[in-house]
Each structure stands twice: as structure tokens, then as C-alpha cells.
Design a protein around this nucleic acid. Sequence first.
DNA 1: ATGCCTCAGCTCCTGAGA
Length: 256
Amino acid sequence: MKLATWNVNSLTVRLPQVLDWLAANPVELLVLQELKMTDEKFPHEAFRHAGYQSECFGQKTYNGVALLSRTQASQIIRNIPGFTDEMARVISADVNGIRVIGGYFPNGQEPGSDKFEYKMAWLKGLRDWLRNELISNPKLVIMGDYNITFDDADVWDPVGMRDQIHCTNEERYHLNAMIGLGLYDAFRLFDQAPKSYSWWDYRDFGFKRNRGMRIDHILISHALKPLVTRCWIDKTPRKNERPSDHTPVVVELTGL
DNA sequence: ATGCCTCAGCTCCTGAGA
């Protein structure tokens, strides 16, 4: 079965593209980020017609996440238990015997800013919760827009971006600390083309020039690692008219 | 180059994103 994540940068604008993508890529489950809409506007019916049940956690203007699945999701949790947050950034559920977490990690804006401090606190809060989640749910996938690169291979201009947002040691410390809980970067379990990115700036023909970053990730637990047969970035939707600046990342699990 | 795109909103500019 295939699981995917996609930051859509406004579901209002991107709904037709999401439906097109699901028709062409009938994954078992898709988590969405940056809905930028409230729950009462969420298009449950459109997804139901496409064969997906949906759980949403919306917010006006900013943030907002959702989880679409072929089969019923249960044990829905919104945001991070134990971490008080005004923003709608996390949704998790049990689907097909797996614990799935979809997250829109804070951007952080600039090292040293209040938003950066919030990002650090958020990452710590996530990890403290995740540590226990992994104990009670060994079969776990956490995916979404992490807004962090692992290393230079994830950055089109690692020299220019050094110590810049998404590339700081502090952010990477937290990302690696998540890995330290017993998680694996599904994308790097396989040989991948150099300069593979999941986000490109709208400005200056970023996509055409492949000036991007890999900041959307799928981390899978130790128990699921042997089942991962493929992981890829689907650049196709980035070529659409009015694209999201992010594109989907997909993982395939075999033998569940 | 405190911009360049894109999106939402108390919309004809501003804040935020990454």
C-alpha cells in the first residue's frame, strides 16, 4: 500500500489538483498540510466521492492539516498531547493497523526570531510525545512538511543556505533526535537521483532551474522498515497551472 | 535587492511562507 504527504498551500485553490492527483495515484492514505481553511469549509464530500474518508484539523488563513484514507481512520488526535499550541499543525490516526501522523512543522522564519524559538519548542514537544507513541505503536509513520533539511544533499545551494532557516544545526539536531527515537528517512533507504527536492520557490523560476530543498519527509519506524519497498517524490503536480510550491512524497509498504 | 511569487483577508496593501 502507498502512503503520501503533500503541502497544498491552500486547499481552496488546490482541491481540483488534489482530486486529479488522487485519481492518477490512488494511494491508501494522503496527509495534507497548509489547508488555510476552517473545518466547516473542508470538502469532505468531494473526497468521499473520490473514495476517501477524511479527517481535518483546520485553521483560518494559516496552517491546517488533514488525513484522507480509503479505510476508516480511528483514534484521531489533533495536535501534540502535552504541548499547548494555538496552531493546527498535527493530525494522527490508526489506519490499517498503522499509527499515522501528519504534520506541518513550523517554518521558523529566521534563526534567533520568536518564531524560531517556537519551532524549537514545538520540535521538543513533538519528540517528547513521539517517544511514547512509538512505544505504544511500534508500527508508525510520521510524515509531512518538516521545514528542515537533513544535510547538503537536500539543498540546491548548501553554501548560500548555510545556517539559514531550514538548514541550521539547531533544526537538524531536532530532526536527528527524531531519527534517534528509532525512525528512518524512507527516501534515503533507496538510491535517489541527485538534487531531489520537494519544494521550490515560486520566485525566479525556482522549479525550472531546480533550485529547491527537500523539506517534506516520511519517517518510518523500525518495525515498518523491512516493509518499505519504494519511496519517491512526485514532481508532476509542480508542473500544473497554479501549483503548490511543494509536491507530494510517496512511500510504498509491501506485506502488511 | 527589506525584491523576486503566491495566498488569505477587516483585500487595491500587508504578513507569512521557505
